[in-house]
C-alpha cells in the first residue's frame, strides 16, 4: 500500500522551500512529484534534468513518412503502371513534393506519439491529483511507505507554508 501526501502551496517559494527538508529526511527525487497548472522552469522546485529523447520519435516518424511518400509517388507508379506515351513512369519532381509533405507529416505524428509516450498519456485512471492546481496553486506530491513518513511529510509541508495537506491511499 502506498500513501500519497499532497501539499497545496500558494507561492512557488513555499513549495520550493519544502524540497530541501524532505531530501534531508531521505526522500528521494523519485518520491516527489510537482503538479502545476502551467509550466515552471526546471529546477524551480524539483530538478529533473531530463533531456527527453523526442528526436527519436521524430526521426522514426519522418523516415516512415518518407517511405510512405516514396511508396505512393514512386513505387505504386510501377505497380499500377500506365503507359503515357513514352514519358517516364515515375517522375522525380512530384516524388520530391509528395515526399516532403509525407515526411513532415511523419515527423508531426511522431512528435505526437512522443508526447503520449513520454508524458504517459492517455491515462484516465485516478492518479493522485488535486484540482486546486487549476487555480494557479502548486501541488507537491510525496509518496510515503508508512504512517511515520506520512506524518513527517505533513509536518514539513505545513512548516513550509502549505495551505492544505491531503492524504490519499491506494491499494497496490
Amino acid at each position: 500500500m502506498s500513501r500519497h501526501v499532497i501539499g497545496i502551496f500558494e507561492k512557488i517559494e513555499n513549495a520550493a522551500s519544502a524540497v530541501r527538508p524532505l531530501e534531508r529526511e531521505s526522500f528521494k527525487k523519485e518520491d516527489m512529484e510537482l503538479l502545476t497548472g502551467c509550466q515552471y522552469p526546471d529546477g524551480a522546485v524539483i530538478e529533473e534534468d531530463w533531456d527527453v529523447p523526442l528526436w527519436k520519435f521524430a526521426v522514426v516518424g519522418g523516415l516512415l513518412g518518407l517511405m510512405v511518400g516514396v511508396f505512393l509517388a514512386g513505387a505504386t507508379q510501377w505497380w499500377m503502371n500506365l503507359d503515357v506515351g513514352g514519358k517516364p513512369m515515375a517522375a522525380l519532381p512530384p516524388l520530391g513534393v509528395i515526399c516532403y509533405e509525407t515526411t513532415l507529416l511523419g515527423v508531426i505524428l511522431g512528435s505526437l506519439a512522443g508526447l503520449f509516450w513520454f508524458a504517459g498519456l492517455p491515462d484516465w485512471t485516478d492518479l493522485p491529483y488535486d484540482a486546486e492546481i487549476s487555480r494557479g496553486k502548486i501541488a507537491l506530491l510525496v509518496t510515503c511507505s508508512d504512517e511515520r513518513q506520512t506524518e513527517l511529510v505533513r509536518k514539513i509541508m505545513v512548516e513550509s507554508g502549505a495551505q492544505k495537506v491531503t492524504l490519499t491511499e491506494e491499494e497496490s
Binding site: 503538479l35 508531426i108 512528435s111 512522443g114 484516465w124 491529483y129
Partner: peptide
C-alpha cells in the same frame, strides 16, 4: 488524464517546440 506533473511539462515543452518548427 493530464495532471500537469513536472515531467509532463518537460515533455510538453519539447513537443511544442518540435511542432512549432515543423
Amino acid at each position: 488524464g493530464w495532471r500537469g506533473s513536472h515531467r509532463q511539462w518537460i515533455v510538453y515543452e519539447k513537443v511544442s517546440l518540435y511542432l512549432a518548427i515543423f
